[in-house]
């Protein structure tokens, strides 16, 4: 099992490296000033990424100055902030879009001023007229694929039957949720499994519980539930406890669980062996990569494809490894 985890970890590192072209090679140049048009600081991902970007920038070979602005989730304010940063003459505009379509106008203004743009975590909408020069984000499809794949392989090793999976998805309008569903489907295809039912949880534990409860009755023999995020895990746990299916790995009543994000509840359930695999929402890797790309983008380098970060898979066997612990940010 350790070998598998290490392989997954290496796979993610190689994938990120391949996307970057030549990892570690940073063109030395003068100071790079990066304007950050951020949505705010209220969300843990926003504040953590702000903190980590500053830390990685401080440790970078190239001198990088980050100029931070926060729009408090106000789309018009984010456009104004971007205008201010363009007026300041930054070398690079780093945008974490509040609205994936509205940000296109700021990208255009930056381009008109000769400033490259990097979209962070949320991509500029595919149909928008003006796209960022590069997107650094999470590989949402890989998250669910790697988590579910790890569970399927564990089931195979345990001699458990692989058949149908209950899918507790996020918001149907959310691109991340959709991609995670695609990832689960791929993992199912790889192992000859199928998705029995798509249960829309809307990233809400109560809604997830409401959707899962009748499904467990409809599929009493189900032995794998895949959840789109740890954020819904408390609802899943409650329903499974009520149904008498809440048991750790090794117990005959155990239902295999795969999830994504590695939030505190995920860690707790990995340690108690109720959760079998959890792929991290790798904010650390995303920030590290973004900082590595900044001097190159500012120097005029172009990138053919998006840079999608693939975080490692946490399992009960590796959850307390120091290497894995260093990846945690939400705990």
């Amino acid at each position: 099992m350790t070998t598998l985890n290490r392989r997954d970890f290496m796979t993610s590192a190689v994938a990120a490296g391949a996307a970057l072209g030549a990892p570690g090679i940073v063109h030395a140049q003068g100071k790079v000033t990066v304007g950050m048009a951020w949505p705010g600081m209220q969300d843990a991902v926003w504040s953590t990424s702000h903190k980590l970007l500053n830390e990685f920038a401080a440790a970078s070979d190239t001198e990088i100055e980050l100029v931070f602005t926060a729009a408090d989730m106000d789309v018009a304010k984010q456009a104004s902030d971007a205008n201010d940063l363009i007026s300041r003459g930054v070398d690079l505009l780093l945008v974490f879009p509040i609205d994936s379509k509205a940000i296109s106008s700021s990208v255009k203004r930056a381009r008109d001023a000769g400033i490259p743009t990097m979209a962070f975590l949320r991509q500029v909408h595919a149909e928008a007229k003006h796209q960022a020069d590069v997107f650094v984000g999470i590989d949402a499809k890989y998250q669910q694929l790697s988590s579910a794949r790890t569970v399927f392989e564990k089931m195979k090793a345990d001699g458990a039957a692989i058949g149908e999976v209950l899918w507790v998805s996020g918001d149907i309008r959310d691109e991340n949720s959709r991609l995670r569903g695609v990832g689960l489907q791929e993992a199912c295809d790889e192992h000859g499994a199928s998705i029995a039912q798509d249960l829309v949880g809307n990233w809400d534990p109560q809604q997830a519980a409401a959707a899962l409860a009748p499904a467990l009755k409809a599929y009493p023999d189900i032995n794998h539930i895949s959840v789109a995020s740890d954020v819904m895990m408390s609802g899943v746990r409650q329903v499974m406890q009520d149904a008498g299916k809440w048991a750790p790995h090794g117990d005959p009543n155990h239902v295999y669980l795969s999830s994504v994000d590695v939030f505190p509840i995920g860690l707790e359930l990995l340690r108690s062996k109720h959760l079998d695999a959890d792929t991290i929402f790798d904010v650390t890797g995303m920030c590290r990569t973004a900082v590595e790309l900044m001097p190159r983008l500012a120097a005029g380098e172009t990138f053919d494809s998006d840079v999608l970060i693939q975080g490692p898979v946490f399992t009960p066997d590796n959850v307390d490894d120091p290497e894995m612990q260093s990846q945690l940010w939400a705990t």
Binding site: V75, A76, A79, D99, K101, S105
Partner: peptide, 8 residues
């Protein structure tokens, strides 16, 4: 903005 949103 080139778009209309609920959080303009």
């Amino acid at each position: 903005l080139g778009t209309a949103t609920t959080a303009m």
